[in-house]
């Protein structure tokens, strides 16, 4: 994973110099540890800013919406699936893109690591399998496998599905992961208990909409929360308003969500917002055999009709 960066820089420099693209979207080091930020490189001299490590969890497909120029984008497995979704939804054209595919080993969960230490973390470095966390007066080595983001730990599409060039050989996909254990646990509850469960889950929400902004699928010109005539959802902290927001945000991602984890990563209150989208993802898989963003040739389930679509909910 760490060795990728030389190859990324080499490809980026080449495509910029040759004029194949006008911009490369990648990651640069952030100002805080474990917070890499997106970066837009426009001249080949600047490629040295690019980095690649286990903190590149932001979904770069988010920055492609409605762009007109030719762009090279660095794509992990989940990013590439979101790029496919973008192309299907006509948010960008395939021939505008030069996709630098990055087989991914999972990203680390910054809030999980931060919660493991009482003192402030000043520096985080990593080698192949370990994360070394340093702060004032302490230094500890963690196994990367133990601190992965939850969605990365259960990811079964680590390799990019479309790319123009790969930075390394494909990594081995995870098998035998139980992707929907937590969804099933909620499904088994009684309605009242479910309601209470989500009340607890959402009680911390401050309506900052970071989950929406981080999501590559959320590109409506006017989001339903900002519509005021009629106003579908209040702007305050009313629990019902909060729930309406989360419900509709998730529902708008039905059949499109790739479980990239950007929403959860962006949440400042550490709410497990993927709880909603994962249920939809599971249903799509079970009802329509659909996984979002796997192919350019297939239309998503919610904009096609097939005679064998499940309809037992209609009287």
């Amino acid at each position: 994973m760490l060795g990728y960066i030389d190859k990324i820089k080499e490809i980026s420099e080449r495509v910029l110099k040759e004029g194949t693209v006008e911009m490369v979207i990648g990651f640069q080091k952030g100002t805080l540890p474990m917070m890499n930020e997106p970066c837009f490189v426009k001249c080949s001299g600047d490629v040295q800013r690019l980095v690649w490590d286990s903190n590149c969890g932001i979904n770069l497909a988010n920055y492609l919406t409605d762009r007109k120029e030719k762009i090279a984008v660095i794509a992990k497995g989940c990013d590439s699936r979101n790029i496919v979704t973008h192309i299907i939804e006509n948010k960008i054209k395939r021939d505008q893109l030069f996709i630098i595919g990055v087989p991914c080993n999972g990203m680390i969960d910054k809030s999980k690591i931060a919660s493991m230490f009482e003192k402030e973390i000043i520096e985080v470095v990593e080698d192949q399998n370990n994360i070394i966390v340093k702060g004032e007066g302490f230094e500890e080595t963690l196994k990367k496998g133990d601190v992965l983001q939850e969605n990365c730990a259960i990811c079964i599409h680590r390799n990019p599905v479309i790319y123009d060039e790969l930075v390394s050989d494909m990594v081995e996909e995870q098998r035998d992961v139980d992707r929907y254990e937590d969804v099933r646990r909620i499904e088994e509850m009684e309605p009242d208990k479910k309601y209470g469960f989500f009340d607890d889950l959402l009680s911390a929400c401050i309506r900052c909409y970071a989950c929406r902004d981080a999501c590559p699928l959320c590109y409506c010109p006017t989001c339903f929360v900002d519509e005021s005539r009629p106003q579908w959802v209040g702007k305050g902290q009313d629990p019902v308003d909060i729930r309406t927001f989360h419900f509709l945000r998730a529902y708008h991602c039905a059949g499109r969500c790739t479980d990239c984890g950007a929403c959860e990563r962006a949440c400042p209150m550490e709410i497990k917002v993927r709880t909603f989208t994962k249920k939809l993802e599971k249903d799509c898989l079970e009802a329509y055999g659909w996984e979002a963003g796997m192919s350019l040739d297939e239309r998503p389930p919610l904009d096609t009709f097939r005679p064998d679509d499940p309809e037992d909910f209609i009287k």
Binding site: V183, Y195, F247, G255, F276, K279, L280
Partner: peptide, 22 residues
Amino acid sequence: MLFKNLMEHMGIEPDRVHFSWI
């Protein structure tokens, strides 16, 4: 269908929302 399932998942009783074709 996805809508109804997610409503149920969120703890709204399934019998509150009905769909039919007449």
